[in-house]
Amino acid sequence: MSQNPCFFFAADQNYFPYACLAARRVLDVSGPIKGFILQMGVSTEDLEVGDRLLGSAVSILDVSKFMEARNFDPGHLTLATYIRLFADELAEFKPYDHIVYADSDVLFNRSIVDLANTQLLAPLLAAHDEQCYFDTKYRRRLPMKPGAPKFNAGVLVFNMPMVRREGLLQRTRELASQRVDNMDQGALNVAFEDRWQTMHPYWNVMTNFTSQVRFDKAFARHFTRGKPWSNRPIGVELEALAIYRHLAKDTPWAGHFARQARFVLKRFTRKLDAITGFLTNDEKRRRRSLFDAEQVSAVFAEHADRLMMAVRYPERVSGIESKKTTTSPR
Results as ranks from 00 to 15, higher is better:
E237L: 05
T326P: 10
Q197K: 06
L156F: 01
G147K: 12
E321G: 05
A122P: 07
S289L: 01
R25Q: 15
H98S: 02
S30V: 07
M1C: 08
D273P: 00
A116D: 04
A153P: 08
V113M: 06
R330A: 00
I33E: 06
F9Q: 08
F158S: 01
N109A: 00
W253F: 02
R270K: 14
E166L: 12
F215L: 13
F268K: 09
F209A: 11
S318P: 06
R270M: 08
I99H: 07
H200P: 14
D46V: 03
F268I: 15
I83D: 02
R141D: 04
A258H: 09
W253A: 01
A176T: 05
F9V: 04
P143L: 01
K137M: 10
R306K: 12
P146I: 05
R286C: 00
A19V: 08
F223C: 14
I112Y: 06
G154Y: 01
A261R: 14
L125P: 13
T224R: 09
N182S: 10
K145Y: 02
R84Q: 03
K227I: 07
T136C: 12
G31M: 01
E48P: 08
D292N: 13
D135M: 03
P143K: 13
Q170A: 05
M206P: 15
V190W: 02
Q119D: 13
Y202W: 13
T198A: 05
T276Y: 07
P32Y: 10
K217D: 14
D194A: 08
V157P: 10
L307W: 05
D129L: 09
E294K: 12
A218P: 09
N152W: 01
L120Y: 14
H200E: 07
D12R: 00
H200Q: 08
R214W: 11
A148Y: 04
L124W: 09
F36V: 14
L120I: 11
V311P: 07
Y138W: 06
W203Q: 05
G41R: 09
L115A: 02
F93P: 02
N208V: 06
M67F: 01
A310T: 06
A258Q: 13
R287D: 03
L115R: 08
K284Q: 03
Q131I: 09
I83G: 01
K145R: 15
L53G: 02
R164Q: 08
L77S: 08
M308H: 11
K150Y: 10
R270P: 11
E68T: 15
L168G: 07
H303D: 15
G167I: 10
L61K: 14
A87W: 03
L38N: 03
G75R: 00
G75F: 00
D273Q: 07
R306H: 05
A310M: 06
V190F: 02
V155G: 00
I99P: 03
S43G: 13
R316Q: 11
D28Q: 15
F134L: 07
Q39M: 04
L54M: 04
T210W: 11
R306V: 02
D103K: 08
N4F: 08
Y313E: 14
Y133T: 15
C20Y: 06
I275M: 14
A10I: 00
E174R: 12
L142D: 03
A153S: 13
T207Q: 12
E193V: 04
A301R: 14
